[in-house]
Nucleic acid binder design. Structure first.
Lengths: 222, 222
DNA sequence: AAGTGGTCTAGACCACAGC
DNA sequence: CTGTGGTCTAGACCACTTA
């Protein structure tokens, strides 16, 4: 349980700039090197990561500066956190199926391979925020967790994802979901189609998230 | 004209793995160090960047592997490339205005400050792909380019952005844009609202992009 | 001339996998 | 035990800006 020095320095810098105005310089790399008694490469690594986060920005030959907090880079795209267990949700439906050409194609499996389907309503302060249709490749789920749907979700949350691919599709809310989402018929909504890939390039899950535009907006800062 | 060594190594690695199957290992860092006659830190920097791009992935204590090309991380979110001059487009409208509360609020300027408004239709193979309403803070545009709208766009393309904030809004296509976008009345579409920030946290431009769902889908791989 | 960030080197030690 | 990626050091030179 040894935290790398560069991570400690990241936290120290965060502390230092917490009350510092945007666009004011932080100490130079050579000053921080002495202050934290670390090598310059280690200090740079800490700064590099904070720059990537959008917390700091560099100007060549001049210095490193505190960024405006509204520039912090975050991706609050809905389905990325689909397996987030912190949220309130209600399971609407759950089964194991096969022989569905469309789903098999999305999951890149044969039509004869099984998949798990979970329909889940996500709540925020009791209000329906989105409805997920989750399809998971049966073969990629450990047998030991198949007995319980909560175990499957917990298992899924731990999957090391290689990347997530999302397509945003505009549509009129499907009639069968309008009531559940507490949205009027004919409301335009966004459906996020996500493919969760493992590191070796196989698809673990395919998710369709129907978002209630009143409760959930997709926002990205890059 | 001196390209850093780590960038050269990135290209060399790209070449090496071009015909290599996904999930097969590349040479170890110490082997690459000798092969390219560079220090390990330099080799690591090259690999680090390729991992960030999603071209490679590491497994601790084991090795570094070629990623599936579908895992390459890209953000093809429309308005990010709004000032991309490579695309075909047609200027629909252009003026300089002020006294618009709503726009002033988005641009975080006083209602008395001027802004430039450009309405632009983006084409792909002659088909309308999206319609942008671009609002730029007048004060942030160099006087020397104000004489020509193309100069303004070129100037904008060169702005060093700190970050881009995007909100995705589902809606029915505005009637006034339906014809231009070659989309039927009542079609559900996505409008991307983008704020282009400079490094010092000021807003340079605000863009509303109305996307033709037939011609343009928003896709992100993270 | 002094100071900055950007790049680079040639070592080093660590924890962990697999044999 | 060997090899891997992860971390770290104490220097160095460069191009550039500002004074």
């Amino acid at each position: 349980m040894t935290i790398p020095i560069y991570q400690k320095i990241m936290e120290l810098i965060r502390d230092e700039i917490r009350n510092q105005a945007p666009n004011t310089p932080i100490l130079s790399e050579r000053e921080l090197e002495k202050k934290y008694n670390a090598s310059r490469m280690t200090v740079r690594k800490a700064i590099d990561l904070l720059v990537e986060e959008g917390v700091l920005y560099r100007v060549q030959n001049i210095g490193t500066f505190v960024a405006d907090s509204k520039l912090h880079k975050k991706t609050d795209s809905h389905a990325l956190n689909s397996f987030d267990l912190e949220c309130d949700y209600k399971i609407i439906y759950f089964d194991v199926k096969d022989e569905n050409r469309e789903v098999a194609q999305k999951l890149e499996i044969s039509t004869h391979d099984q998949f798990v389907r979970i329909v889940r309503l996500n709540l925020q302060n009791g209000q329906p925020e989105s409805l997920d249709q989750i399809y998971i490749v049966r073969l990629m789920i450990d047998d030991s967790v198949m007995n319980n749907i909560l175990n499957i979700l917990e298992f899924s949350a731990k999957i090391e994802t290689g990347s997530v691919n999302q397509v945003f599709v505009p549509m009129i809310v499907p009639v069968k979901f309008a009531n559940l989402l507490n949205v009027k018929i004919n409301t335009p909504i966004i459906c996020v189609q996500s493919k969760i890939n493992t590191k070796n390039g196989r698809i673990y899950a395919y998710i369709e998230s129907y978002l209630n535009p009143e409760a959930k907006s997709i926002e990205i800062t890059i």
